[in-house]
């Protein structure tokens, strides 16, 4: 399974989401590859992605997709991430 984390430059907040999502997935026992991207990489990465994790600002950028879009409020709240990932994947 592939999970995308999306932010403005693909190297900042998406990196926080990546490391905390990997931690949450490990706790949930879910095997997935997490890739941090920016909006310019969205088109090429979206095809086989099951979930996109991002902040509220980027939802519009994503547009229509078959992937589950999970909006994260506090990037450091691993409990929030874990709960939302479990809802989407469980």
């Amino acid at each position: 399974m592939k999970i995308l984390t999306l932010c403005g430059a693909g190297i900042g907040t998406s990196g926080i989401l990546k490391v905390n999502a990997e931690r949450a997935l490990q706790r949930l026992g879910i095997d997935a590859r997490v890739v941090a991207i920016d909006a310019s990489m969205l088109e090429s990465e979206l095809d086989d992605a099951q979930v996109i994790l991002t902040g509220p600002e980027f939802v519009e950028t994503i547009g229509r997709t078959f992937a589950d879009v999970i909006v994260v409020e506090n990037y450091f709240d691993t409990a929030e991430l874990q709960r939302k990932l479990e809802n989407a994947l469980g």
Partner: peptide
């Protein structure tokens, strides 16, 4: 990109 840099 907006104020998303306020990460916590």
């Amino acid at each position: 990109h907006g104020p998303y840099v306020v990460v916590a």
